[in-house]
Design a binder for these strands. Structure first.
Length: 804
DNA sequence: AGCACGCCGACT
DNA sequence: GTCGGCGTGCTC
């Protein structure tokens, strides 16, 4: 009787997207469990790959057709993927058209990904001269892409002649951080004796021994070196002399720099109370109920989350809270940690690989009961969930834009079902999908209609910029907004200014011939960056100097157009010379921690005006901001995408909520060229319900989500014709399986036809029910794989965030 | 992905 | 005549 392990190997292709059978060696028979990582031989070379044990067949009858290979080694003492996450990975792979292995890797911290190394060593037959020239006095040589091409050729040839050996090494990227701890090995009395026997000149040693006499507790080596002022060589001598012992101790890297300030639950208003009770009831009864918590900014959603989480914890269960990356600020983390202290683990992109891995291990070992994090935290290995929260559920950053193209909200709902616990989706402006589901009672709607402390909503003014242009000279600031800014300056209050960056940035154009500088790799204009004095491509990173002479007509009349944050800042300094301005955009926040630093400066009143892009609209809470200005509300409206209105409405509503959160009333100015547009008019009154009704009618008429499902298929290739041809073939293939009710849009060139020297073509399928579509798309993916060697790439995006 | 096998052009 | 270029198929 042989035991057979089904292993999912780390080879992300369509053809290998199935478990492979391996014999379990006798030594591992009772040790191996599903969810462990193993090293297995794969392929006809001596190649070794990492794999995940998927299943173990106790007494399988081996297929006589194939002789099984045997598992090499086990990489984990215990499974690192539990049963739930194994099932989840299968579901993910099926719904997102991704490979199982890719899904497994996505769920785990990067530190657990395999690291592959190839080592070569000489055989006895290898001529001495070659051995010396290749290996010198080393016994092994690392074979990677850093080797010169001719060395690789030589190695390849020697390998064919069996003159060298190749060893494949698979290891984990993970490293457990260890700290060297130092402790006296002798009693203070004995150390005093040692002290007297030292030579007079041994000042450092004397200092060290004095310290050891006074402190018998273990101390980290670095700290000891710093406090006593001794070097590591002195410590080594001390160790050999038997005065002290050194031991490496495993530690967690601590991602929290700030201390926790304990907070107490706040008094709830009746609406909050109702919401908390409903969620708690579901937790208590173990019901997988889903809630849509609708509440304007300042209505106290976070307090509802925190009390629902507290209830789950009191029942001995755990909680998961997802927050969009951009609003995962120290403010939010601090609030959760303030309530739940050491029980909280945080997962976000600001952590280093090691910190992330350590937080993950704390969760996996059951040392953290509450997890707060961005998109990928939805895979946190909590085993006893009592409640899941998805804050700002409408945020598009919950959708991952490469494989697997999952939506964290969908994963959260899946896990809620698995754990039989409630999922709370919170937003001031829910996605149409979620709001529509609430309409059909798939979700239970919970409303927080009032701001806490009965604050009034800010007064919103819409400014018609076409009108404004007729009376004044060209400017980014209407006279109304400028006057309001001046008033804030006089009163010592703060203002937020948002520049809607999407599809709108500064470029240079020749006034003589109209030439616009384009990226050589992508079909897009280069953007002007004054800080580095260069032109940059936002898609591929290409950079070149600002031209002084037109490359086309050689004229000298180059002019800057459009509006970037830098240009606005410049104009603002001219208009309001006394104003202190902080600019926040991709350029000023690129460095780690810069984002937080700028926000703190603003919070500390080091500036009067915070000028920025979308990133200033989310999750900020500055009590002294009484004015919010949106400089260009409608740049997103012009985009040919079915979600353009929804995005604009959400953004305007959200940024308006930033004004006047304290006792001081807030004021909002929205500058636009489309003052009559419903998304803008309804954002003015914060009328989500009416926007929902209106937008749903349009979606219905256009057969858009949530009335129809959608799948976007993209083909890309360096050769434009190949991408287009592939697309045409796919359409033909799909038409044979699709019902007449399905609607195919395209194929069309991508919104930016060329990115990074690759041409993009795409196609959107809108459908209600197409039982054959899934299989057909998997088939297409399989066929595409065969061509991928020639550079053709196919991407399938189910429920895309946009059709562009 | 990455390895071996197999078929064609440019050399010793 | 062989070496090594890359196109093709397969991996328990």
């Amino acid at each position: 009787m042989t035991q057979i392990a089904e292993v999912v190997v780390d080879v992300p292709t369509m053809q290998t997207n199935t478990p492979y059978s391996y014999e379990i060696p006798a030594a591992l028979v009772n040790q191996l469990q599903p969810g462990m990582r193993v090293v297995v031989p794969f392929g006809n070379g001596g190649r070794k790959v990492q794999g995940f044990v998927w299943q173990i067949n106790e007494d399988a009858k081996p297929n006589p057709e194939v002789t099984l290979k045997s598992i090499d080694t086990v990489m984990d003492p215990a499974p690192i993927v539990n049963t739930e996450l194994m099932q989840l990975s299968k579901w993910l792979a099926n719904t997102t058209y991704a490979f199982t292995i890719t899904c497994l890797q996505t769920m785990l911290p990067n530190a657990l990904k395999a690291k592959y190394q190839k080592w070569v060593s000489p055989t006895a037959q290898l001529p001495e001269t070659i051995r010396v020239s290749l290996f010198g006095d080393q016994s092994e040589l690392l074979w990677d892409d850093s080797l010169p091409a001719d060395t690789v050729k030589q190695l390849l040839s020697l390998n064919r002649q069996h003159l060298i050996n190749v060893r494949y090494e698979v290891s984990s990227k993970s490293q457990v951080k260890k700290v060297m701890m130092v402790k006296p090995a002798l009693s203070p009395e004995k150390l005093s004796v040692v002290r007297t026997e030292l030579r007079k000149t041994a000042v450092k040693q004397a200092a060290l021994i004095d310290f050891l006499i006074a402190n018998s507790k273990a101390i980290s080596q670095t700290e000891l070196e710093r406090t006593v002022g001794v070097s590591s060589s002195i410590l080594k001598t001390a160790e050999t002399n038997g005065w002290l012992t050194r031991q490496a101790v495993e530690v967690y890297r601590d991602p929290f720099q700030t201390a926790v300030v304990k907070t107490k639950p706040l008094q709830l208003n009746p609406d909050q109370n109702k919401a908390v009770n409903a969620i708690c009831a579901a937790t208590d009864e173990g019901q997988a109920r889903n809630f849509l918590l609708e509440g304007v900014t300042g209505s106290g959603k976070t307090e509802v989350y925190l009390q629902a989480i507290a209830n789950a914890l009191s029942k001995g269960e755990q909680a998961l809270m997802l927050v969009p990356e951009i609003s995962l600020t120290p403010q939010i983390v601090g609030r959760v940690r303030g309530r739940f202290g050491e029980k909280v683990a945080v997962l976000h992109s600001g952590l280093s690989g090691g910190e992330r891995f350590d937080e993950w291990r704390r969760i996996q070992r059951g040392e953290a009961q509450v997890v707060v994090g961005a998109r990928s935290a939805v895979f946190a290995p909590l085993t006893n969930l009592g409640v899941i929260v998805v804050d700002e559920e409408h945020e598009s950053s919950y959708k991952q834009d490469d494989n697997p193209r999952y939506h964290a909200r969908d994963v959260a709902l899946w896990r809620g079902r698995y754990h039989q616990c409630p999922v709370v989706l919170g937003s001031a402006t829910p996605s149409l999908e979620s709001r529509a589901r609430a309409e059909k009672n798939v979700y239970t709607r919970l409303l927080l209609p009032n701001r806490v402390n009965h604050q009034q909503l800010p007064q919103v003014s819409i400014i018609d910029m076409t009108e404004e242009l007729r009376h004044h000279k060209e400017s980014n600031f209407s006279s109304g907004l400028l006057q309001a800014l001046q008033e804030r300056l006089n009163r010592g209050e703060q203002s937020l200014l948002m520049l809607n960056r999407r599809g709108y940035s500064s470029f240079v154009m020749c006034r003589d011939c109209g030439f616009v500088l384009q990226c050589p790799n992508c079909d897009i204009s280069l953007t002007l960056h004054m800080d580095t004095k260069t032109m940059k491509c936002h898609y591929c990173g290409h950079e070149e100097p600002i031209p002084h002479v037109c490359p086309n007509c050689h004229g000298r009349h180059i002019r800057y157009y459009g509006t970037g944050t830098q240009k606005v800042e410049q104009e603002l300094t001219e208009l309001l010379p006394t104003a202190r301005i902080i600019r926040m955009d991709v350029d000023t926040t690129r460095r780690k921690g810069a984002h937080e630093r700028l926000l703190k400066q603003f919070g500390d009143h080091k500036a009067d005006i915070l000028l920025g892009t979308q990133m200033i609209a989310k999750g900020l809470d500055f009590p002294d901001v009484t004015l919010v200005g949106v400089l260009n509300a409608d740049t997103a409206l012009g985009l040919p995408d079915f979600r353009a209105s929804e995005r604009t409405f959400q953004l305007l509503t959200q940024v308006s909520g930033r004004a006047g959160r304290a006792e001081k009333p807030g004021q909002v100015f929205i500058q636009t060229y489309n003052p009559e547009h419903y998304a803008i008019q309804l954002a003015k009154t914060q009328n989500y319900e009416q926007f929902f009704v209106r937008e749903m009618q349009l979606r219905h008429r256009g057969n858009y989500p949530p009335y129809f499902f959608a799948v976007k298929v993209t083909a890309s290739d360096v050769d434009e014709r190949k991408a287009a041809e592939a697309m045409v073939k796919i359409v033909r293939q799909l038409k044979t399986v699709l019902s007449p009710q399905a609607i195919i849009l395209g194929p069309t060139p991508g919104a930016i036809a060329r990115v990074n020297k690759r041409y993009y073509y795409q196609l959107v399928i809108k459908y209600k029910q197409e039982p054959q579509l899934r299989d057909a798309l998997f088939t297409i993916l399989g066929q595409a794989q065969k061509q991928s060697r020639n550079g053709l790439q196919i991407a399938i995006d189910r429920n895309p965030m946009s059709f562009m």
